[in-house]
Amino acid sequence: MVTLVLFIAFAIIALVGALGVVISRNPVHSALWLVATLLSMAGFFILEGAYLVSAVQVIVYASAIVVLFLFVIMLLGVDREESLTDPLKVQRPVALMLGLVVFALLIGLMGNHWATGAQSATAALESGDGGNVERVAREIFTTYLWPFELTSALLVVAVVGGVALARRSRRAEAASEVAQ
């Protein structure tokens, strides 16, 4: 019963938040609605016993990533309202139709039997020693060691790419001064 009430509450917050992201005129409001959805996701994860994922969701997603969004919005000063009546009037109903069709297809295709897969033989949720954190760690450092190592390359990409894009290059500035 508690689960049911919590699920419905989180579901309402998540859906309202998602709609809020799409409908808000002001990007700052969109970002705040996004926080609502992300936090309710963390709630779902707790309901489903994924405690570590839930904590990481709050720490990384709901705080770090959203703060980065807000930071950029404020830095650029683009928090002004955007008119939602834009030149592409035809696009909106088409997009809505498309979204409904995708949703209906997903639901229709899958019917009542979504999870048709095998029950896990090696990495069961409740077996083994240690809590959720230890078991997730064991999976990451054994089965998923290669993707884990690959993420290091991803972080290097993020650093180098961010620097390359956002840095003011002395060479480029000198060149554009010459051009002017």
């Binding site: 997903l106 295709l109 039997h113 979504w114 999870a115 048709t116 095998a118």
Partner: peptide, 12 residues
């Protein structure tokens, strides 16, 4: 090994 009766999820 298994013949899936409900193939919807896989197809999606």
């Amino acid at each position: 090994e298994v013949t899936l009766l409900e193939r919807g999820t896989l197809l999606a």
